[in-house]
Amino acid sequence: MIKIERTPCPTFLSIEKAKELTNKFRETDKSVWKNKKLKNALLEMSNYKCAYCETRLEIKDSYMEVDHFHPKSLYPSEVLCWNNLLPSCKKCNVNKRDHDPIKEPIINPCEDDPKRDLCVEGARLYPRLHSAIGKSTIDTLDLNNNARLVTPRFELCNLVKKELEELHYNNIIDCAFRNKFKGLLSACSADTPFSAFTSNTLHNDSYYSEIKEKLKSNNLWSDELDELDKATKNLALDSR
């Protein structure tokens, strides 16, 4: 899970339109949030990933669901409140069900920085400093499901380690070397799956700092690499 910046409310979801559809939901119980424009706006906001588990989503894929952070069954007036909507995979949405985050708080990635309450060890999430919110978030959303999340996280992090090792033992420090390093940084950026984990692996590997120094000493470090370096470091959850 990474911090997501909430984008402005889409123009098509005006106050009047939201009120109209909210009343329709109250009267008919119809899924008034199932709108392609709304889904697309949410997907763009989260880099086409589930806001909770960071799995990849696509608008054409029915696996993407609109999550109501405050559940619509308990807070029907917020059913089309933009600040209450998040893009979710079906699994996280089902796991969360009617969980009331007001009574039992969990992380809202648009309002809370997950780095405050979560940390990683291997390919698993843990509450940071025994955070009750962190534990509740992990348990409620089943964020350490082995088959669905832990295994693919582990595989991606292993690929990062493999790329770092190959770069470390490559003694030809040229533009091709720099481009490969840039590709590795990009593969751990916010628009890629499980970036909280891959960026942690990247920045905590001893080879990473050595490769940076090689590039700098050969005058191959650039502003673009510097931006990617800072961005991925900002994504990385702390190690346990």
Rank of each mutant, 00 (worst) to 15 (best):
G134A: 05
C175Y: 07
R148C: 11
P76K: 12
I172F: 14
N145C: 10
I138F: 05
V160P: 09
E104L: 05
T55F: 01
I172M: 14
R116G: 02
N145Y: 13
I138L: 04
E166F: 12
A51W: 01
E121Y: 08
K161L: 14
L141H: 01
S131Y: 03
K91Q: 14
L57I: 08
K72I: 09
V79A: 14
R56W: 01
S73W: 09
G122F: 08
C89S: 07
H168M: 07
C53Q: 05
K162G: 02
K96M: 02
N144S: 12
P127Y: 03
S136A: 13
K162L: 06
E104S: 08
K90D: 13
S77T: 12
E104Y: 11
K180L: 03
Y52K: 00
K162A: 09
P109C: 07
P87N: 13
D67C: 08
R56K: 15
K90S: 15
R124Y: 11
N179W: 01
L74C: 06
D98V: 03
K103C: 02
A147N: 15
E111P: 02
C92S: 06
K103W: 00
C157N: 13
E78A: 00
P87S: 11
D113R: 06
D100G: 08
K115G: 03
N93H: 06
K103D: 05
D142L: 10
H99E: 12
R148L: 15
D117S: 07
G134C: 04
D61I: 02
L159P: 01
G183I: 03
P105W: 04
K162P: 00
A147W: 13
E155I: 11
K60C: 06
D98H: 08
N93S: 10
D174G: 13
P109T: 01
T151V: 12
N95P: 04
K182G: 01
C119N: 00
P127L: 03
P101A: 04
L118F: 04
I107Y: 05
L167W: 15
G122T: 07
L159Y: 11
R153S: 08
G183P: 11
L74D: 03
I102K: 08
K115A: 09
K72W: 12
L143S: 02
K182L: 10
K161S: 14
E165Q: 14
I106K: 00
C53I: 07
C89K: 01
N83F: 06
H168K: 08
F154Y: 14
S62T: 13
E54C: 04
K90C: 08
